[in-house]
Design a protein around this nucleic acid. Sequence first.
DNA 1: TTGAAAGCGCTACCAC
DNA 2: GTGGTAGCGCTTTCAA
Lengths: 357, 357
Amino acid sequence: MAPKKKSKRSLTSRAPVAEAATQGSRATSYDVALRAGISQSAVSRCFQEGASISPKMRARVMRAAEDLGYTPNAIARSLITRRSNLIAVIISNLTNLYYPEVLAELSALASAKGIRVLLFTLSSESEIDHVLEQVWQYRVDGAISAARLSSAQIDTFSKNGVPLVLYNRYLQGSAASAVFCDQSDGARVLVERLVSVGHRRFGVIAGPRDSFVGQERVAASLQQLAKLGFHNVPVVAGEYDYESGVRGLHELVSAAKRYLQAVICANDVMAIGAMDAARFDLGIAVPDKLSVVGFDGVGPASWSSYRLTTLRQPVQRMAEATLSLLLDRISNPSLPAERRVFSGTLIEGSSAKLGPT
Amino acid sequence: MAPKKKSKRSLTSRAPVAEAATQGSRATSYDVALRAGISQSAVSRCFQEGASISPKMRARVMRAAEDLGYTPNAIARSLITRRSNLIAVIISNLTNLYYPEVLAELSALASAKGIRVLLFTLSSESEIDHVLEQVWQYRVDGAISAARLSSAQIDTFSKNGVPLVLYNRYLQGSAASAVFCDQSDGARVLVERLVSVGHRRFGVIAGPRDSFVGQERVAASLQQLAKLGFHNVPVVAGEYDYESGVRGLHELVSAAKRYLQAVICANDVMAIGAMDAARFDLGIAVPDKLSVVGFDGVGPASWSSYRLTTLRQPVQRMAEATLSLLLDRISNPSLPAERRVFSGTLIEGSSAKLGPT
DNA sequence: TTGAAAGCGCTACCAC
DNA sequence: GTGGTAGCGCTTTCAA
């Protein structure tokens, strides 16, 4: 291996080797110090907020830094400050259409606060342990998870002193902070209004088993239906994607012998799939012959071809809350866990007939 | 500030302080060494690939590590190895619907290779300098940029010894590696076939000025149109979003006095917007009265409501190529820049009438 | 205000 | 195979 060429060990009072950041290795605070004829610690101070340094000295240092193309090494800094300014964002399926919106918000907000996002995506549930291993290695200051975490996994966060905020899910009995949207209320309103306008035969396309919000949406809907006297509502499984919606509707329709009147889908994309399946595969007019509703409020839901009736999540406010919870706990680790619960907004599109407000 | 409690300085031959990773600070290789009654360097070796360590010793160390919940500190490691195993991924608009797909691919591939993704999103072009500053600070091993970079900005990468691969763009005269999809061919075919089947009055909805592929798509289309005798084709500006497509079609139609026959959109989402505007706002049947084509091949393009005729980019293969170019240059920085150019695939949906193949 | 020195937790290079 | 030692580039006391 080629020998590094930094002299080191010989402090400021050494021959001023005019040493530019040539090949590969970048300039260090040490190089800058040498060039500015000053101590290394003074250079360090120049790059800190309220450090005591005289204006003339700072100017000299900054000039030298510029000449050498010096940038402080955040890695080395975080080693000693014990702050990486890194947060982990763990997302299970970026293909969900909903999560990119969340990620974009989180990333923008974090960036504005000088925090960097280390992204971890899972293509399968089984990767989670491996991913967590990486999270620990990088000594992130905190983590946001929109992926399913077991209670034991959640515990490792506090054990490792890494604040964690769950997004769009929480674990009962676990003391993890969480931000999510309580859609039970919305689901109840939705169901009630569907019933009030005369829908009688319902079907549900559920989300994946590991989706917390999916379960909640379905459960709340079924519960309200039961309350209003509708039992044994058929539920088919889905995977949150368009094809699931298409497939789901086919299944429901064949099960219901075409008498289906309203379909509640655990997310928008499946609702869109269901609408398309109804109109194009089965020749069922939406909303005249079939009402379709979804959850999320993603972009495509509002496209003219769909104008989906859905319960929109306040993504931006939720992202803000998530980051704020996290940053609070990073600066004060002893803060107790907190849940921030939002309400969804009912978007009355034209994919379902609803009763009067 | 509370005094740290690690004794350090006293090497192995010290009183074995039974020290668990209690509050906050995590266990170090030093703690593990102490507990296993072994040297710190041996512990380090246990966590490296082909390091020489006896099985029994390794077992002992691993046990101690487990007890203490020890995980190697990647930050400290990268300080000395000069490898952070971090790559920067710079993306301008995650809201584009196309980029989340790319990001998901890149992230999955990187993860599989033991590389972590540090995500940088830009909400505006002006942030780029600030973002680059952060990229330097974190000493990433390499970078992938799907955002617009000036030639000077590109130069700073090589100046800092950070390999860079541009995604979906390249800069003429600049020696940066790049992966993109040459859609000129596809655009030519598309135009030719539109003409062959009788379209005469064209319109174009362009992408943002800073979109390299957008410019290329439009330029190639116009060029081919000119070649076939169609000059002064109206072009309206767009921002790649659904509303741009809607607005764009309105503009084109009013300019063309309703005689518009085919619209070429610089991406799928605008094409979708244009289709919706045609059908729902203006009562123009697609493709009977108007053909609409797009570029990208994003998910929604294939939804039954659209079945868009589009030129699909091989996202997965492009992501693979991008990462492979980058990793090659990380392990061998002297490798010359390279461009990997892919061809798009024409997806014949039903949003446009095309001639025979 | 400034500089010397002591590490942060780790890997690398030695001798043994 | 193993352990000591010397740093990686930085922040942080602590004296001067």
